[in-house]
Design a protein around this nucleic acid. Structure first.
Lengths: 148, 148
DNA sequence: CTCAATTTGGTTGCGCACAACTCAATCGAG
DNA sequence: CTCGATTGAGTTGTGCGCAACCAAATTGAG
């Protein structure tokens, strides 16, 4: 592989992920708009619907986001009435995030989102499952390499 | 596939792309910092080093970014002395972007970036090439589905 | 017990992304 | 040619991401 190819090739992997990620959120946007959620807020809802209550630290580890991103995001979601934040009694450093009734009430509508997105992706379920596995494996190798 | 799986599965494809894309830019960041570039600015440099001069419209089509993103980004790069912007004589609506000598002079150092990133990815070149092809194909299917 | 180091979450500042809008230039139907 | 529609950039406002920094709570070596 020549150096010229390397520039184009390497660009294409990072650029492919960058473009695909943004195109993906564009697919979600109209569906999430009906729920009053942004895409990162949707991810927070998925995390909370699966496990709750949870600390900001754990949420950050799950979503790979730091407090600089999560703090204002959670504040907006709390202002929207979807969740509550409270200091842990056990460890006053920790903030525990819980869904409100209004947040929990979105479960059904959130469960309908993936089917709506699938139609807009233009790929088969098999292709999506396979790609997800490949990207997830790649991400795991990257995180392991960085961790060393 | 149950609806419960669908939520988790679908989440995982979009979330995998979202996480992998961000982890990827994290790999680039320290290398690009030495060049005084952000990751989107690096993509602009790659596009310009491959074809130049180019209009803002064409640059946006290449990078899938609109003027709301590109205008201030290009303004910052112009302020950094990397490129110039000028109205086209043929069509006064268009703005033509060209590299300055300082911008062109970065070609060599930019060409060294991919090799540096490769080391931090933890994946083989074969894995990266294969994943790039899969993600690019997925992106193409998505754009085709949206275009219909 | 004590106090320095660590952990947790928050704030600030900057640079994207993107929607919504404005304006000037160009196009094109009639 | 004319004028309404379209196109290409730019501006504004909002919401991420993330680095850098801060304060408070906790931990742990001595």
């Amino acid at each position: 592989m020549t150096e010229r190819d390397a520039v184009r090739l390497e660009q294409q992997l990072c650029f492919a992920l960058y473009s695909a990620s943004r195109a993906m959120t564009t697919c979600y946007r109209p569906l999430l708009e009906d729920l009053g959620l942004t895409y990162p807020q949707y991810l927070v809802m998925l995390a909370l619907l699966e496990r709750e209550p949870v600390t900001v630290k754990d949420l950050g580890a799950t979503l790979r986001l730091d407090s600089g991103t999560l703090s204002p995001l959670l504040k907006r979601m709390a202002a929207a009435g979807l969740l509550t934040r409270s200091r842990s009694a056990v460890d006053e450093r920790s903030v525990v995030v819980s869904l409100t009734e209004a947040g929990e009430a979105l479960r059904g509508r959130i469960a309908e989102v993936p089917a709506g997105v699938l139609a807009a992706l233009g790929s088969s379920l098999e292709q999506i499952v396979a790609l997800q596995a490949d990207v997830t494996a790649f991400l795991a190798r990257m995180e392991r390499a960085v961790g060393e």
